[in-house]
Amino acid sequence: MKVRVIERRARGIYTKSRIPGVDWTVNQYVGCAFACEYCYAKFLTRWKGYGRWGSWVEVKTNAPDLARRHVSGSVVMSTVSDAYQPLEAELKLTRRVLRYMDKRNQLSILTKSPLVTRDIGLFMEFGNLEVGLTINGFTGREKRLFEPLTPIQKARVNALKELHESGLKTYVFISPIIPEITDVSAIVEETRDFADRYFFEVLNLRASGREFRELLREEYPESYEALTVEKAFGEFLWRLRKEIKALGVKTEGIETHRRGWEFVGL
């Protein structure tokens, strides 16, 4: 699918965050060609008017100049895009943002792409930086239905390993966790040698959008029930907490999104 590129100049690149534990967000791109069916950022299509999610990407052409500012607190890149989506290989906008960014900034980068390893040299210049890979274990049918355009899991795991072996702090974002589908233990066992910590996020069914909710209800009714029926969800969450606790990895808990943002301790 050909992706429409919209170039524009932004007034700023650091945005105050509403995400608990995150002070600032940076998005040099808005929109994402990975076009994951469950993506929480799809809400942007209501205001952007460019068409279906995944068919367009906004490029903030002056982002490198705007990145020079020093901000206090934690900065996360990216929340409504992927900094290393396919377009980045050509435009190198993320690379230029990193080059001009104040290296004192506390930066966390999250991506699904092995392209992230290209910038290991730049990452080493930061005093406080970590890089995370979203790894959810989707293969076969689930991959085709949920995120057909993303890099495969093995490529993500290999990227995580390369980042770790270069001496960088790394984390794994296991998301979305979908009952009866996501094998959390298998993901941890495959990555534990290369990850300093883990984040666990249960699928935010409301934010995933009507089309994905219908897809999940029709194709995976047991998973849908476990996320929508209070008793079933409680049982699923109890099992998940027990499973994660037994794995013994460093984490702060589980994001559930049942009533807005919720963080469930272990």
Rank of each mutant, 00 (worst) to 15 (best):
residue 1 M to S: 11
residue 2 K to R: 11
residue 11 R to D: 15
residue 12 G to H: 02
residue 16 K to V: 13
residue 18 R to Y: 06
residue 20 P to M: 01
residue 21 G to C: 07
residue 22 V to Q: 07
residue 25 T to N: 09
residue 29 Y to T: 14
residue 32 C to N: 10
residue 33 A to Q: 14
residue 36 C to Q: 04
residue 40 Y to L: 09
residue 41 A to G: 13
residue 45 T to C: 04
residue 50 Y to C: 14
residue 53 W to Y: 12
residue 53 W to D: 12
residue 55 S to I: 05
residue 66 L to D: 02
residue 68 R to N: 12
residue 72 S to C: 05
residue 76 V to C: 01
residue 78 S to M: 10
residue 79 T to G: 07
residue 80 V to I: 14
residue 81 S to D: 13
residue 83 A to C: 15
residue 98 L to R: 04
residue 98 L to Y: 03
residue 98 L to G: 10
residue 106 Q to I: 00
residue 107 L to R: 00
residue 109 I to Y: 02
residue 112 K to D: 14
residue 117 T to D: 03
residue 118 R to H: 06
residue 118 R to S: 11
residue 122 L to G: 11
residue 122 L to C: 11
residue 133 L to D: 13
residue 133 L to T: 12
residue 138 F to R: 07
residue 144 R to Q: 14
residue 155 A to T: 08
residue 168 L to Q: 10
residue 168 L to M: 12
residue 173 F to W: 08
residue 173 F to L: 15
residue 175 S to P: 15
residue 176 P to Q: 01
residue 178 I to A: 04
residue 179 P to K: 00
residue 184 V to Y: 02
residue 189 E to S: 08
residue 190 E to Y: 02
residue 191 T to W: 06
residue 199 F to P: 12
residue 200 F to Y: 13
residue 201 E to G: 12
residue 201 E to V: 13
residue 202 V to F: 03
residue 204 N to S: 09
residue 205 L to M: 10
residue 210 R to T: 14
residue 212 F to D: 01
residue 219 E to C: 00
residue 220 Y to D: 00
residue 221 P to S: 01
residue 229 V to Q: 09
residue 241 R to A: 10
residue 256 T to R: 03
residue 257 H to F: 14
residue 257 H to S: 13
residue 259 R to P: 01
residue 261 W to N: 13
